[in-house]
Design a protein around this nucleic acid. Structure first.
Length: 522
RNA sequence: GGCGCGUUGGAGAAGUGGCUUAACUCACCAGCCUUUCACGCUGGCAUUCAUGGGUUCGAAUCCCGUACGCGUCACCA
C-alpha cells in the first residue's frame, strides 16, 4: 500500500492530522509499502512562513517517519516535487488534456456574479452552486473565450461535469465499505485564477502520479468524493481506495462537534509538546480510539512494541469519537511506568530545556539525584504511577529541590502550633538515619502514643474527642515539613533521598514557621 | 434547504439473527489494603442497544419511517 498525509502549511497541526497520519503509517508499514508527506500549499492566503518546519517538527516529535516527501533539506523521493505549488506545470498539463477532451472550460464569472447567483438560488430555494442553467460560461464559444482572454480577463478552469443529481455513484471505502453517494453535477473549479489547482484537482493528479493506493482522510471529504472519482474516471485513471476516517470530536458545552483549529488550540500537537506528553502515550491513546481491540491486545501483551499490533481498517469506527483527556492521562501513566528512570530523565530533561530552563538546570546539576527522585516508589509489586506528563512531573518533583520547595498545603486545625512544634521536636530527638524503615516507623508510633494520638486513624474518626489527633496527623505533620504537602510518596523513602541535613533543616524550619514558611531556607 | 454519514452506559467501545441475564478500558461510586496520596484488589454503575413500525419461532444485529447529531454544498483544505 502507498499512503500519505497532506497537511496544509497553516502553522497549525493538530491531533486529527496525527490521527490520520497514524492510520496511513500503519497501513504502509504493515504492508511493506510507502508512506509519504505531501505539503498541500495551494492556498497561498492561508500559508504561514515556517509552517512546513512546524509540521515536520511536530510530526518528528511524535516519531512519524516518512519514506518520501518534503523535508527541511528539500524533497526526498522519486515522485516529487512533494510541495503542490512546485507541481504547477503538472496540473496544467493534465488540465490541458481535459480541455482538449472538452471536459474542462474557462469560466469568467466574477466574485460578484457568483454571489448574486447564490443569492438567487437561496431565494428560489434551489441547490447552491455552479451547474445547469447557472453554469453561464459552460457553453461559451471559442471566439468569445478568445476575446475575453485577449482582454486579459481573469478566469478559472472548471470541470464540465457529466453527472446527474438523480444518479448515484458507488465509491469503495476501506473503512465504511461500499458507499452510494449522489453523483456530482457541479462544474467545480479545477484551476484557480492564479493557475494553482484546488484541492479537488490537486488530490486527483497527485495521488495518481504519486501512486497512492489508499487515500486516508477525514470524513469531511466524504461529500466531495464523487467529484474526485469523476475526475479519476474522466482521466481514465484508477481510483484509489478511499479511507474516510471518523473525526475526533469534542464536547463544546452541550454540543458535540469536530475538533476545530480556531476553537480548540489545546488540541494542537504543540499543546502536547508543551505539556510534555510522551509521544508513545499519544500513539497508544490514538490507537485505542482507532482500533478498539487495541486495548485488549495491550492487556495480553503489556510489554510488546506498539508496532507489533495488527492494525486493521475493518476495526475502525465510522462514528466520531470524543477526545478523552482523562483516558490519555491514564495511558500516559502506564507508559511512563514502563520507562526506566534513565529514559524518563532523558525525556524530562529535554522537555525542561525547552519549557523550563531553570528546572532543567536543577535536573542537570545532579543527574544521579534526579534519577533517584524519579524512581521513588516505582519498585516492587505495586509501583506508583504518579507521572502523567513532564509539566506535571516538574510540579510533582519540585519539593525535592530546595530551590523550588514551597509549603503548598495546610495542616488540619487539630494540629495547633504547639502540637506541631512538639511533634517535630520529639521526632527530631529520635531520628536516626541508620534506622530501617521498620525501626523508623516504630519510633513514629511511640511518639504517637506519647502524645496520646490514636494509632489507628479509624479510632480517631469514630471518637475524635478522645484524642488530639491520629497517626495520620502525626505523619502528615512530618510530611508537610519535608514535602510541603499533605500527599507525597512514602515518608521514609523521601527522607532517605532528601538526606539527613536537608530533612533536619526543613523539620526545624517547619516547626518554627509552620504554614507561614515562605521561601527557601539558606 | 439539498446531499451524505452516523446514533449501544458519563467517555471509548465489543457485538453483524439464538452462546448477550450486552465483553473490555477510562471515569464515577462503595468497600478493602494503607502513616497521606497514589498503586493494587473486590463490588456497583445499560432489564437494554435514539425512536416508531415491520420481517422472524427468535433482533442491538435485517427492512422502512421519524427524531436527533455531525459533515458538506468556496477561486479553503
Amino acid at each position: 500500500m502507498v499512503t500519505r498525509i497532506g497537511p496544509s502549511p497553516t502553522g497549525f497541526i493538530h491531533l486529527g492530522n496525527l490521527y490520520n497520519a497514524l492510520i496511513g503509517e500503519r497501513l504502509a508499514r504493515q504492508s511493506q509499502g510507502v508512506f509519504f508527506l505531501r505539503i498541500e500549499d495551494t492556498d497561498a492566503k492561508r500559508e504561514v512562513p515556517g509552517a512546513v518546519e512546524i509540521i515536520l517538527d511536530a510530526l518528528g516529535f511524535f516519531g512519524v517517519v516518512f519514506d518520501e516527501g518534503a523535508t527541511i533539506q528539500g524533497d526526498k523521493g522519486a515522485y516529487g516535487p512533494y510541495r503542490q505549488r512546485l507541481r504547477k506545470e503538472i496540473y496544467q498539463t493534465v488540465a490541458k488534456k481535459l480541455v482538449e477532451q472538452g471536459l474542462a472550460y474557462p469560466c469568467f464569472a466574477t466574485e460578484e456574479e457568483l454571489a448574486t447567483m447564490r443569492q438567487k438560488q437561496i431565494e428560489q430555494k434551489l441547490n447552491f452552486g455552479y451547474y445547469g442553467v447557472w453554469a453561464t460560461y459552460r457553453n461559451t464559444n471559442l471566439e468569445e473565450i478568445e476575446r475575453r482572454l485577449q482582454q486579459g480577463q481573469s478566469y478559472v478552469l472548471r470541470f464540465r461535469s457529466q453527472g446527474n443529481p438523480e444518479h448515484s455513484v458507488k465509491v469503495l471505502d476501506g473503512i465504511r465499505g461500499e458507499l452510494e453517494l449522489q453523483e456530482n453535477y457541479q462544474d467545480f473549479v479545477l484551476l484557480k485564477s492564479d493557475g494553482i489547482p484546488t484541492y479537488h484537482f490537486a488530490h486527483v493528479v497527485d495521488d495518481h502520479f504519486m501512486r497512492t493506493t489508499h487515500v486516508v482522510r477525514g470524513e469531511e471529504w466524504l461529500a466531495t468524493a464523487p467529484m474526485h472519482v469523476q475526475v479519476f474516471d474522466a482521466l481514465g485513471w484508477n481510483r484509489p481506495i478511499y479511507c474516510h476516517s471518523a473525526q475526533l470530536m469534542k464536547m463544546d458545552g452541550e454540543i458535540k462537534r469536530k475538533l476545530s483549529k480556531r476553537k480548540d488550540p489545546e488540541l494542537a500537537l504543540a499543546y502536547y509538546q508543551q505539556e510534555g506528553y510522551v509521544p508513545a502515550a499519544i500513539w497508544e491513546y490514538l490507537l485505542t480510539v482507532l482500533n478498539s481491540n487495541f486495548e485488549e491486545w495491550r492487556l495480553a501483551n503489556p510489554k510488546a512494541n506498539i508496532m507489533d499490533f495488527p492494525f486493521s481498517l475493518e476495526k475502525m469506527s465510522t462514528s466520531g469519537a470524543l477526545f478523552d483527556l482523562l483516558k490519555l492521562n491514564d495511558i500516559s501513566k502506564e507508559v511512563i511506568l514502563n520507562m526506566s528512570a534513565q529514559e524518563i530523565y532523558t525525556q524530562l530533561l529535554l522537555w525542561a530545556k525547552n519549557y523550563d530552563p531553570s528546572f532543567a538546570a536543577l535536573l542537570e546539576s545532579d543527574a544521579g539525584y534526579a534519577q533517584r527522585i524519579i524512581d521513588v516508589g516505582r519498585q516492587g509489586e505495586r509501583p506508583r504511577k504518579d507521572l502523567i506528563c513532564w509539566r506535571q512531573a516538574r510540579d510533582f518533583l519540585s519539593f525535592y529541590y530546595d530551590e523550588t520547595f514551597t509549603i503548598e498545603d495546610s495542616l488540619p486545625a487539630n494540629i495547633t502550633d504547639a502540637l506541631r512544634k512538639e511533634i517535630i521536636t520529639k521526632y527530631l530527638a529520635t531520628l536516626d538515619y541508620n534506622d530501617t524503615q521498620e525501626q523508623w516507623f516504630a519510633k513514629v508510633k511511640t511518639i504517637c502514643q506519647d502524645l496520646g494520638f490514636a494509632l489507628q486513624a479509624k479510632k480517631y474518626q469514630k471518637n475524635p474527642q478522645d484524642y488530639p489527633g491520629s497517626i495520620v496527623d502525626l505523619s502528615n505533620t512530618i510530611r508537610m515539613a519535608l514535602s510541603g504537602r499533605l500527599n507525597s510518596p512514602d515518608l521514609w523513602q523521601i527522607s532517605m533521598i532528601l538526606g539527613k541535613d536537608r530533612c533536619i533543616r526543613r523539620l526545624k524550619q517547619f516547626a518554627e514557621n509552620g504554614d507561614n514558611f515562605a521561601s527557601t531556607p539558606a
